[in-house]
């Protein structure tokens, strides 16, 4: 019961980040919003693994936690004229 409230609150957080991703004046704002969405998503996946009661689903959350920062680093290196 209380887990469903958590899921709804996290959904509201993703909607707020989408608003910033649409509105943001510069590209850096949008990149920050995307980075926030990835962190929120990692927590959402772990909580959904608790809902489904499957231990092996945590591997997907581990992939998110390991790999998601590479996209942000690529965008940042492009913005500072790195690559």
């Amino acid at each position: 019961m209380i887990v469903s409230i958590f899921l709804l609150v996290i959904g509201a957080a993703i909607v707020l980040c989408l608003i910033r991703l649409i509105k943001g004046p510069t590209a850096t704002d949008r990149a920050v919003a995307l980075d926030t969405v990835t962190t929120v998503t990692t927590a959402l996946l772990v909580i959904l693994a608790l809902v489904f009661k499957r231990y092996i689903y945590l591997d997907v959350a581990l992939v998110y936690a390991v790999l998601m920062f590479i996209g942000s680093v690529a965008i940042a290196r492009f913005l500072e004229k790195g690559i």
């Binding site: 962190t39 942000s72 913005l79």
Partner: peptide
Amino acid sequence: VLLTNPISNHALGRAAKKS
């Protein structure tokens, strides 16, 4: 999460200042 998240946010902040 504790290792990767600060690195990407540091890179974004530096990119915002540099651009």
